[in-house]
Design a binder for these strands. Sequence first.
DNA 1: GATGAATGAGGGTTCATTCAT
DNA 2: TATGAATGAACCCTCATTCAT
Lengths: 205, 205, 205, 205
Amino acid sequence: MNRPDLAARRGEILHQIRDAAIAEFAAHGFHGASTQGIAARAGITKNRLHYYISSKDDLYADALRHIVALWDELFHGIDMTRGPEAFLRDYIARKLRHVLAHPEIARMFTAEIMRGAPVLRRLWQPSRDATLRAATVIEAWVKAGLIRPVDPILLQIHIWALTQHHALHGPETAFMLGLTSEAELDPDRLAEEITRLVLSGLRNE
Amino acid sequence: MNRPDLAARRGEILHQIRDAAIAEFAAHGFHGASTQGIAARAGITKNRLHYYISSKDDLYADALRHIVALWDELFHGIDMTRGPEAFLRDYIARKLRHVLAHPEIARMFTAEIMRGAPVLRRLWQPSRDATLRAATVIEAWVKAGLIRPVDPILLQIHIWALTQHHALHGPETAFMLGLTSEAELDPDRLAEEITRLVLSGLRNE
Amino acid sequence: MNRPDLAARRGEILHQIRDAAIAEFAAHGFHGASTQGIAARAGITKNRLHYYISSKDDLYADALRHIVALWDELFHGIDMTRGPEAFLRDYIARKLRHVLAHPEIARMFTAEIMRGAPVLRRLWQPSRDATLRAATVIEAWVKAGLIRPVDPILLQIHIWALTQHHALHGPETAFMLGLTSEAELDPDRLAEEITRLVLSGLRNE
Amino acid sequence: MNRPDLAARRGEILHQIRDAAIAEFAAHGFHGASTQGIAARAGITKNRLHYYISSKDDLYADALRHIVALWDELFHGIDMTRGPEAFLRDYIARKLRHVLAHPEIARMFTAEIMRGAPVLRRLWQPSRDATLRAATVIEAWVKAGLIRPVDPILLQIHIWALTQHHALHGPETAFMLGLTSEAELDPDRLAEEITRLVLSGLRNE
DNA sequence: GATGAATGAGGGTTCATTCAT
DNA sequence: TATGAATGAACCCTCATTCAT
């Protein structure tokens, strides 16, 4: 009757491996990452790693799918019906907090795009659909005079850019602010600054 | 009398190599880049590449120094005395045009930061000094009531983030906008959208 | 229950590799030795060799440490209390027999010293301590009138030189003696000749 | 009328190159030596080196021939007619002084022998002839009762060994004697010690 | 389920040498 | 005479993966 335990153990190891892989891929990209390095981050041997994964390519694709699903879930259920301010506050805060807690996730994602997104390309359609759906809401806000006229796609991209940046460039931002490490970055302060910039930037008149 | 030719030929090859290196490092990061790949991009053999460079490490560091110098030069002479609007229009347009014309440059830069900036760290101080100098101007604008109160460091970082993003995520942005390639991105349209967002976002009242 | 077998197999291969490495380093020095050549001497592929060793440097240092330990053991337990003659007969015979049976060992050792002993230098102190201890015994022999006054350090070095030489210059000695190969050198004959030279050379009066 | 100058210059450079080659071959053996390293020791570029030499092999063989000729010359004209003591004093002093002043020469020679003497083998015959000639003189000394019975070939080899050793193992000897470098070794002291050992070792009775 | 052994491919780099001029 | 350019071979080592058990 120890099957559940075994399955749980296996699941846990796979979990560790995925986290390790994301960190390694984030730091060095697909080609630069080594299974040796991933194994080390996961605290296991390379042999054992290769027992659990089928190949580096698959591990990479799985990690990317995991990230996409994670972000899908992260923004699931955000209420756009309460108007732009409530939405933006919520959205920016969620994204920023998540991204500062797990910068590797954002970094692996960006690294994949920087090399031309050969794997990610196949996973983009749902994301685009969601963006287009959100665009119609934003356009409704414009029509209702709640915000000034704006490109609803680019707006989403720019909000994304502002939050994503702090994950990618955390060390640089910390240095510019006079902090000793990116761990000292204050999510609330950053969220507040970004939110105000965007909210003011969308004010009508 | 063929000395100038020799020197010119050498300079040209070194130039090609550096461009090729930046592209390769941008796509795959330091560890993922191969001198084989760099040579291929430069249209020469690996052996010939290694005749011209001293090592992969040095080539990488040189390329980074080149980027830093390039950006330094790019923003040199921007007039901050004509007030926030003129400055921001100029700054954003310059950065965005440059970055869309040479996305690899921005990508290599970000890739270096994503792996912890082991090389770039030593080159940051001048950049920070410039940021602090600009911050005092921005604070003067705030005091003069030209813009609303704002963190002058984070403002610069966020403007940077908005422009940098289009270099890093060009393929994604193009996809979201329904374009077939990032080459179709219109710098003027993006610059206008970003400039309006920031200018509005800084409006007093 | 095949663990002992595995460990034994591994140990055996490592043993072969070390012997092969000593022979290669002896013939060509550190820089001139190739892992390819070591692998060939060990009867394995280069890839397999690199599976068993961590690096050429480490293999080299390990081999040197092995030699030092070997010689330490070789002379361990020689009785100096029975006076100079018994001691010298035993010492010279042991060293010469060992060195003619394994000339590569002496050669690698000398090759390391000839390039400045960058690795060996750290292992010399115990050897010097032993030499100084032996020197006090020799001085006692002088005081007791058993041998003529002599520099006790240089005496040891010269005895060493006489035996070591036959390992290094075996082919030359064989040629001079009209033999066809160094394998034909007779350890007993050489030991006798050296012993007589030194014993006579130390006679009082 | 500058032809003699040119020839002189060329000769000087070739001289420098040979010295540099001997030093490099002495430190790293034939395979371990690099033309780059030789050029550096000679203070010229690798290109220029290859302009003056035909190949690494030839340079190596030339250097070896030079050494053999040098030693031939060194012992030329030593008077064996004045009896063993005068001869040995002269011989040992000459060899030792030379070898301590130019240890690289002795080292390159020994390195070649340690790898099996593939090149040197062809140059040995004259050396053997001289050894055999000297042997007859030594045997005459024995017959005349000037020295005790001794193997006349091995005697020469052992004297050679005692002097050669200080060239090969200079750093080690210096360390054992408590000196800081092999440059501090005193040729006279060593010559005296060796001469006394051998002379006493050959005494009749 | 897990781990040592092994391997072919490719990594960056140095090698001795030849070709230009 | 002398020097930059170039090259094919070999250098040590790491890679992802497969094969044993």
